[in-house]
Design a protein around this nucleic acid. Structure first.
Length: 609
DNA sequence: CCCGCGTTGGGGCC
DNA sequence: GGCCCCAACGCGGG
């Protein structure tokens, strides 16, 4: 829809890149020398209603969008981030028709929904004569290229990623690009031409009815009352507009490109921290300050370029090397951590849609977990109000819900889960603790249940990394040493013998002596009274005349560890994977001796056979 | 076929 | 703090 052949009206579609620095796509867009430049965000009902997003991540997203909008406005007072409330697949054709768009530019996204969405958009653009430019900028290396250099197979180890990266270049990503300067950002159309008055907004009622985030909405959902937003100004949505109560936001972690760059610059000045960083030596119990960089949410929203992170760190390490100072090495150092992120992205890129679940996924080992995700067939034959997972054990579902809410009765687990809920972030090793506990090292509940909770609560939730790490921890892919089990007592104690993390996030236990802080149920009743908290029942945050109450442990951990280990051994012996016929049609139960009534066989043997 | 290793275990011993 | 063993997976190299 070219309004005149000389003008270049460039629509820049922000998605995974809420930044101006080191953006290959933005650089490509501006190098077209546009006569008109319109940076937009499409407020997609798929993300709004179908992805699990809790209050802290909404907040982080809105802060990042507002920061980007302000940055555009600082460079060009006529500019901002133009937020349009409709699905991209339906609204983009309306925009390029109305605005006379000649070019559409965006950053490549290899997530499975994103791929399908982008293919659809590209098809529509070609039909309308709009030129599309797509550039990779979200990863160190293009995940598709890594896959092709890995023989077309998903990357299952860091060494495979390193080998593939060395075939692309010298193993390093490209150097970061500069941010645009003030006169690099052209004007949008005049305001009266930007106005979308009269454009019919596609309805989202059906999607809104299936809103997986309805539990977080306290107010009215005003997200789609106007295609330009409630003030008809394309403004960044507010929490109120989404129906989120701002007083529910208690996270200390905030979004925005300058927040990310300030954080990074602070670490870069500390060359010892950068050079000697080894992930397994950073404490999961540290808070204020945390022991790791907290830059993962910025990588997720693209407020920080991963290539800038890589090269700023590499340059520090190179200088240390020249000065004969030691550096940590891959995979535990910072570049190694970033390679893990690319490993999961490339694994996801190779597998596609099935990557995020067990059903149909060739890389995932099948375990006879409790609370399995139902197969598409089981869901089709079920009632509409049924859960998406099979409640094969009411007890296991209770364990799962207590885990999610942070009232398992194991303070280390509960502190971490409460930190996750209030702040949207916990340390990587904390994630290991709670993930092992839910799956192979305690509850024997499907990793998919845990992944859904993390998807909702983490501000840094990245599908590829979240799913990949849950597979890792549940020993269903990437990692197989299931006999290495995290103890909810010893592991925390090793890092935090005083129990400071527990005192912080389980304040009812704050006065307990460190002798009992990890096992408060062992404290004598007289001491429990003295320290103002009785360990009883299964509820937390309940007060009695005696003071506060903390739950008793929901099971005997040693018993559950043994039972889970036995289960893992048997499941490995059975040897099914997500794409096996028996997994797809439900007959896997036979291989595990589960009868038609869903009854599991009596396990007589102990761990030793 | 064996061996050593794999980002991040626990427990006992010295 | 370091070392070994526990019981034992999958992979890649020799």
């Amino acid at each position: 829809m070219k309004s005149n052949s000389a003008s270049k009206i460039v629509l820049y579609w922000h998605r995974t890149d809420l930044r101006l620095h080191d953006s290959p796509a933005l650089t490509a867009a501006l190098s077209l020398k546009p006569t008109t430049f319109i940076p937009i965000w499409t407020w997609d009902p798929h993300y709004v209603y179908r992805s699990r997003v809790g209050p802290n991540r909404w907040n982080f997203l809105l802060e990042s969008q507002q920061a980007l909008s302000n940055s555009y406005n600082n460079l060009n007072p006529n500019q901002k981030l133009w937020v349009i409330r409709e699905a991209p697949q339906t609204v983009l054709p309306k925009l390029w028709e109305r605005w006379g768009v000649t070019h559409l530019v965006f950053e490549k996204d290899t997530d499975s929904y994103a791929r399908a969405r982008d293919e659809e958009v590209i098809r529509l653009a070609e039909k309308a004569g709009v030129e599309v430019i797509v550039k990779m900028g979200r990863n160190l290396f293009d995940p598709d290229e890594i896959v092709s250099k890995n023989g077309g197979k998903p990357t299952m180890s860091i060494s495979q990623v390193e080998k593939a990266a060395e075939k692309i270049g010298d193993g390093n990503p490209e150097r970061p690009l500069n941010s645009p300067a003030a006169n690099d950002i052209p004007d949008p159309l005049p305001l009266e031409k930007m106005d979308l008055k009269g454009i019919q907004q596609d309805k989202v009622d059906d999607q809104a009815k299936m809103d997986v985030n309805s539990g977080h909405r306290v107010g009215k959902d005003n997200q789609y009352i106007d295609i330009m937003g409630p003030n008809h100004d394309f403004g960044v949505p507010t929490l109120e507009e989404i129906g989120i109560d701002p007083s529910n936001i208690h996270t200390p972690h905030h979004g925005g490109e300058s927040v990310a760059l300030d954080l990074l610059n602070g670490y870069i000045k500390d060359e010892e921290y950068i050079g000697l960083f080894e992930k397994p030596n950073t404490s999961p119990a540290a808070f204020e300050p945390q022991s790791t960089t907290l830059l993962s949410p910025h990588l997720h929203f693209g407020t920080l370029s991963v290539r800038k992170f890589w090269w700023d760190v590499k340059d520090v390490m190179e200088n240390r090397k020249k000065a004969k100072k030691p550096n940590a090495s891959i995979p535990t150092n910072i570049p190694g951590q970033l390679l893990f992120r690319d490993m999961y992205f490339a694994a996801q890129a190779a597998i596609g849609e099935a990557f995020s679940r067990t059903y149909g996924n060739p890389i995932v080992r099948f375990i006879d977990w409790h609370l399995q995700t139902k197969t598409p067939e089981e869901i089709a034959h079920g009632k509409s109000e049924d859960k998406s997972y099979d409640v094969d054990s009411a007890e296991a579902e209770e364990w799962f819900l207590r885990w999610k809410e942070g009232r398992t009765g194991f303070p280390w687990i509960d502190a971490l889960m409460r930190q996750l809920k209030t702040e949207g972030w916990i340390h990587h090793l904390g994630r290991h603790s709670v993930a092992c506990f839910l799956t192979r090292g305690g509850c024997y509940v499907s990793w998919e249940r845990g992944a859904e909770v993390f998807e909702e609560m983490l501000i840094d939730h990245e599908t590829a990394c979240n799913i990949g790490n849950w597979m890792w921890l549940s020993c269903t892919a990437f990692y197989a040493q299931f006999y290495r089990c995290y103890s909810p007592i010893s592991f925390g104690k090793k890092w935090d013998p005083e129990g400071n993390l527990i005192r912080r996030y389980c304040p009812e236990l704050a006065k307990f002596d460190k002798k009992y802080i990890y096992e408060p149920w062992r404290a004598p009743i007289a001491d429990q009274r003295k320290w103002g908290c009785r360990v009883t029942g299964d509820k937390s945050e309940t007060t009695t005349e005696d003071g506060q109450v903390y739950p008793k442990p929901m099971f005997d951990f040693d018993e559950r560890r043994t039972a889970s280990l036995d289960g893992m051994k048997e499941a490995y012996h059975v040897g099914l994977h997500g794409d096996d016929k028996q997994v797809k049609d439900g007959t896997w139960r036979k291989a595990f001796g589960i009868d038609d009534g869903g009854q599991r066989p009596q396990k007589k043997q102990k761990t030793k056979q």
